[in-house]
Design a protein around this nucleic acid. Structure first.
Lengths: 152, 152
DNA sequence: TCCTTATCGCCAACGATTGTTGAAAAACAA
DNA sequence: TTGTTTTTCAACAATCGTTGGCGATAAGGA
């Protein structure tokens, strides 16, 4: 994802208006590596702008995804997760307990699938999801994070 | 997945009762490689037992998954898909147009993730999802299948 | 300035899934 | 066969994440 300043520019040049709430979302996403859900983004943004609506957050996230500035992921946690890192080829570690998502950069950068062509499949992308337990959920002492939502 | 007869045995020995609708579901799943959703299973089963309810199908699929006889997958198509193949290590090709799912056996059987341990993650499973277009959706002539439901 | 767009709040709807009800049917052990 | 337990059914409501409408207000930007 680009910097908030660049995004401001990008939004303007694509006919979108730049509002305070959008810039706030830009800032919140900037450098966020937690792969937040829309609600999570909303929660953080709300601390700065109490009245911002969830709808506005969804809309802005979609705009950003449409512009290719963030990626929207479905890693089976029940909610769409947003990833500001679209420049590095990477995959994901998903905690099956708390649903936290971690990047795994430079793993299997060569991932390609010749067999796909043989099957007639026109393969566009490959995505690896590793499922397991994050450090917090493994830790015996500290309480893990919250919510779980299985699948697979 | 085991044969309907073995599943009958397994259900009995695990305290579950074996009903006509359950056996019908066993038969339908047997050899099914389409990775059907619960609704898809229900549709097929309904041809044989018009009155079977969707709830019964959901319940039986969950029982089978609990016993490890089938796998429930979330490949981002919006519905849980069920895979009777739990013996072969394999990954999946998902059509981003119609949502059809195809097995990809014996690809990256060595997939393991050392970096996971470094990050403190206790990795249990690795799943690769290849997204692209299936032969039907690529074909210019024939109409592709139905439903799409993006993500990622 | 003026037109366009975004935002708000609020509420309804979506689709997949789960839960609830009570009654009927069937499984299965004795 | 009888009796107990489980399953099924139908119908409906509720869940959760997400999207859509609405009118009104606020604000961007040329």
């Amino acid at each position: 994802m680009r910097t908030p300043e660049e995004l401001t520019e990008l939004f303007r040049s694509s006919g979108r208006k730049v509002t305070a709430q959008r810039q706030c979302i830009f800032r919140v996403l900037q450098g966020d590596e937690t792969h937040p859900s829309a609600e999570a983004v909303h929660a953080v943004v709300s601390r700065e702008m109490e009245t911002i609506s969830l709808k506005t957050v969804y809309q802005t996230l979609h705009d950003l995804a449409e512009l290719g500035e963030i990626a929207s992921l479905d890693v089976g946690t029940g909610m769409t997760r947003f990833d500001p890192n679209v420049t590095d080829l990477h995959h994901h570690l998903v905690c099956r307990q708390c649903g936290s998502v971690r990047d795994l950069v430079a793993v299997f950068p060569e991932l390609r699938i010749p067999e796909g062509a043989d099957l007639g499949f026109d393969v566009g992308s490959a995505e690896i999801v590793f499922r397991g337990l994050c450090p917090e959920c493994r830790a015996p002492a500290g309480r893990g994070r919250a919510r779980a939502r299985s699948s697979t």
